[in-house]
Design a protein around this nucleic acid. Sequence first.
DNA 1: CTGACCCAAACGACCGTTTGTTTGCCGACC
DNA 2: GGTCGGCAAACAAACGGTCGTTTGGGTCAG
Lengths: 196, 196
Amino acid sequence: MALAERTRSPRRTELIGIAARLFSERGYHGTSMQHLAEVLGVQRGSLYAHIGSKEELLFEVVTEGADRFLQRGESALKLEAPASERLRSLLVGHVETAIEHLDAATVFLNEWRYLSPELRALIQDKRDRYEAIVRDIVTDGIRAGEFRNDADVRFAARLVLSAGNWTYTWYRPGGELGPKEIGERFSELVIRGLQP
Amino acid sequence: MALAERTRSPRRTELIGIAARLFSERGYHGTSMQHLAEVLGVQRGSLYAHIGSKEELLFEVVTEGADRFLQRGESALKLEAPASERLRSLLVGHVETAIEHLDAATVFLNEWRYLSPELRALIQDKRDRYEAIVRDIVTDGIRAGEFRNDADVRFAARLVLSAGNWTYTWYRPGGELGPKEIGERFSELVIRGLQP
DNA sequence: CTGACCCAAACGACCGTTTGTTTGCCGACC
DNA sequence: GGTCGGCAAACAAACGGTCGTTTGGGTCAG
């Protein structure tokens, strides 16, 4: 059976969701097919009716995480607004994505390196595209005079990504601040740092 | 043999160094005793002459990483200087530590969660102390009027930690910029963001 | 001759994956 | 309306291999 046909199976989708949770909690190598099967309520051999391999499962989860970030990033880039506003939108979207899909985001950020070289390259490509989006926005801001023209674009972009990507390590649901507030505060600090 | 006695054995130290490298490259669960033994040039059972368990090895590496950060942080806190200068010193020291001991730092940041609850609590304590140091410096800066008094201390501290902690994911030795330059640029951006 | 160091072998458990078979449900046809 | 083919889903069992760890005996330098 081709992968594309299996993709729509509800049972398969359910399994991917379970994998996202367990991989984020115990790590990819720390999660066995046995663990996954127990949560799904099935024998471990039965999982192979829905997936081709354990790695395929990791790839699905990582891709899901990557695509969410990329989608949000691209819509922030396309906004008709000043660069600082687009940067704010991107950072808020980033934090929201990371928090609303905490499991997939955690696996995307932590476990993608355990993919085989071929699959990892596909993800690396999406990471590169995302980082390019951030750099483009910062560059626009410098050109428009919104940001200091001596700002180092690559460092500014990395500060933004660092702030967003570390969130999943300390955020726990039910805190006093929602995703949006967190993103707003981060972006305010970062944008102030970039202003002339 | 007590743990304290074994600690000074050169062979054991060598093993811990190998563990730092392999755990950082392949993850804790992705590294087997077999892998470690091969690099040391020994049968895997022989490793147990030097350590009590695989987890003890992880604990040693994580502790090494944690202590390095904590030591640098404490010396930055004690500096006789304005808060902005101490914050700069801390961030530079953080990045330097992360880069100079990239393996131990990576394991400390990534793999500590796989420790058993008892050992993990010991590390969590060090993490808390480190975060408290950052918060203290920011609070001092606000009190002294160096930083905006509407700055959110916890968010500022987290931005600093995020910037520092994400470094290991993208830094590769031999780049154009050294650890010190990287730390300086980050701290400049952050401190600007905090100024009134 | 004492320790530090290591080997060879084995322990039971678990790993990811494959196989052949069974189950229960579906729409199609008599 | 009843029966039957087909099919997705799951089972039980086994594959060869690896896991972390223990044991007992050997080697060799101080």
